[in-house]
């Protein structure tokens, strides 16, 4: 089983952001402080908006954007 998934598909836990697919979304997410390479914690998983903790902030992300965030499970 591959460890690389879309953020919209994963369960609660710690993940590393590997890629953000659409340039527009990359810009939007970087403005709010989510960058490729960041370690994030999923607090609430999909379906519906996903809630993650990144650095000191908690951020809700709509399902449509979560689909374009590629993450890898941290051990």
């Amino acid at each position: 089983m591959t460890k690389i998934k879309r953020l919209s598909e994963v369960k609660e836990g710690k993940y590393k952001v590997i890629d953000i697919l659409k340039p527009g979304k990359l810009k939007k997410l970087s403005n709010i402080g989510i960058l490729i390479g960041d370690i994030i914690e999923v607090i609430k998983s999909g379906p519906g908006p996903v809630i993650i903790k990144n650095k000191n902030t908690t951020i809700g992300i709509g399902y449509g954007i979560a689909m374009d965030i590629i993450v890898e499970k941290m051990e």
Partner: peptide
């Protein structure tokens, strides 16, 4: 607008 919203403490 897609939803990206900060949840303040």
């Amino acid at each position: 607008l897609p939803l990206i919203i900060e949840l303040p403490p």
